[in-house]
Amino acid sequence: MAWLHVHYHSEILMMPTAMEVLLPEYASGGNRGVDTPGPYPTLYLLHGMGDDHTAWMRRTAIERYVSGLPLAVVMPAGHLGWYTDMACGKPYFTFITEELPRICQRMFPLSPARRDRFIAGISMGGYGAIKAGLLAHETFGKAASLSGTVAVEHVLDRIGSRQAQDIFGDLEKIPGSPHDLFAAAEQLVSTKASCPELYLWCGTEDLLYPDNHRFKVHLEHLGLPVAYEEGPGGHRWECWDRQLQRLIEWIMLPPETES
């Protein structure tokens, strides 16, 4: 595995930014590389609130979990933007779903196929990953959330109303808008577009557990493809490090249907 610290320029964010990237090293021999040349399927892995692009490398053993797999991992910085095109701020949703994949496919040997593009995250990043999956459904083949803030109206439990308005605009208008993942799922079903395969996990001791369970029931009711798991644990890296291994297994499964 090659581990890259990348400092690059985002035209969408109008500033330099950073990401960590793990790339398979194609090698004919030895046990450190992979035996398949690229282009590789890619997992875009999003951090949570207060973290940055280094969080996954520092808090989990992700490099060990993907070593030997023909899978690239891109860990971008999403700052405090909730992976959303902010009402007063930067367009993080467009950055994550459009510009970042284009930059990465240009710079590294990554597959451009939807079925090879995955997105996942924790907490705020779980919200971002599911939002990307539902709204940019033509871009991602799978989208996964660990302990995601899936009920966005509860964002006010975590940030002040001023900050929330900068991100989401008029808070009264969130329900039913694209920011509302429950509504975004309904909207996707109504357009009959192909939905990425979804994966949700939440710890049963997490304050976000009831929302996650409710979201899973909602997705199942809509007939969307969701794999759901829960287990003991709270809103903690110990849980995410463990569950990341499960998530990678799920990512590596062949697609359920070709679309």
Partner: peptide
């Protein structure tokens, strides 16, 4: 421009 610090494994 992108500035990349790449940690790679060298078989050589």
């Amino acid at each position: 421009m992108a500035r990349i610090e790449a940690h790679i494994y060298s078989e050589v």
